[in-house]
Design a protein around this nucleic acid. Structure first.
Lengths: 222, 222
DNA sequence: ATTGATGGTGTAATATATACACTAATACTT
DNA sequence: AAGTATTAGTGTATATATTACACCATCAAT
């Protein structure tokens, strides 16, 4: 491809999901600078020269939210002409699932705040075309949990089967049958008992499980 | 996102598949200009200012191969630093399935030739990172025919069930049972008998079917 | 009339998915 | 110590989906 210049910039945006209290949450930052003063947005920004797309996604996520070591998966490219009022920007979106505990969020003085918001209770319209990106990411997430074991990235190392089931129910927005759920995960072999039990509940203690593999795999879950 | 300039260009590349004689073929052009003189490549190029990504993909496909009105689906973005020797180029790849008959291929004087090649018999190493893109597209294609009705874009309006089965077998690289195949497609309701029969074979004439819908749909085929 | 080639059909066995209800073990309360 | 509230944990019967498998039908060509 020939040498040339273009009036187009390349950016990345990150859709980071987590599950908390039966809610699917997405990580947003609140903008400070016009034209989006006070508006919430997905963490994102322009790539640097010489920087790979996924490297840029990780760097920008860390800068804007404090999250590091997140496995980001490329989602889709968005290039609506009007998606960025400052000019033509093509954005390559990334998405990820993280476990909410063990996160310390912090942002820089370029942004007002960073926090998770329930996807059904967003703080108003998002900046840019970020609602389009979020919808696309949610659809991908719903599809993805059904044929891969990505759910591991949402859960701590050890978890109960009820917690795993609740995570699936939240992402899929539907209830699952407890016995059938357990039959399925055990026949798929994606989890194994750790021997330990969850302590402290006002009820029978639950066995703690762990994932047999924390690699990305295709498993046809639900 | 702030005003800024970047040392990165945006391109699109197209992976156009078809099936012929039991082979999965991909459309390639033969380059004329160095550093890829004589080397085959996927049709692709830089986007124009003000042009949408999918518009650029269609335009470039038409310019370089003569194909128009092809439904292109965005595949993935590739940004290996060394993918283009002339500098940093991010390429958004598109892919499609087309029916081979009724195609008139032509290219411009910027390229030597355009033609389909069997994916298992490529004419040497491809230009850029186009083998990576092709591998990715093949994986997507294999996955996609199994849970959508995209196969329609590979077939003419009317076709026999044997032709449909052969197309699936080629894309999936495995044989399917004739009776089970027919049971499945009829229970899915994705095809309907046209009433007409295929003529001219030295054998019993086959019923011609057509797809009930030529819209993209999720159907869980195989 | 025969031959060669592809079209077209059904059933039984197995595997998978679904619906459904009770007992077990703990913490807390009285 | 007994009772209560709460979540953990388990099995079976039914329905649905998948798989394996073999023969006759219909045409063109000879």
């Amino acid at each position: 491809m020939a040498k040339k210049t273009q009036q187009v910039l390349v950016a990345v945006d990150n859709c980071i999901f987590t599950v908390a209290e039966g809610r699917l949450d997405v990580l947003l930052i609140q903008m400070k600078q016009d034209p989006f003063h006070g508006v919430w947005a997905l963490p994102g920004g322009l790539i640097d020269d010489g920087e790979r797309l996924d490297g840029a996604a990780s760097r920008i996520l860390e800068e804007q939210t404090g999250l590091s070591d997140v496995y980001l998966e490329q989602l889709y490219s968005f290039d609506d002409e009007s998606r960025d009022p400052s000019g033509r920007v093509v954005s390559i979106a990334y998405f990820s699932l993280v476990q909410r505990d063990s996160l310390e969020l912090r942002t820089t003085d370029k942004y007002q705040q960073v926090r998770f918001w329930g996807v059904e209770g967003l703080p108003g319209k998002l900046a840019y075309d970020h609602e389009t990106i979020l919808d696309y990411a949610r659809a991908r997430l719903t599809a993805k949990v059904q044929y891969t074991n990505v759910m591991w990235s949402l859960l701590p190392e050890k978890f109960t089967l009820s917690e795993l089931q609740a995570a699936y129910e939240t992402v899929l927005s539907r209830r699952l049958d407890k016995r059938n759920f357990r039959k399925k995960v055990s026949s798929l072999g994606i989890v194994q008992a750790s021997g330990e039990r969850a302590t402290g509940g006002r009820h029978r203690p639950a066995m703690l499980y762990r994932f047999t593999s924390r690699e990305a795999e295709i498993v046809e879950v639900f």
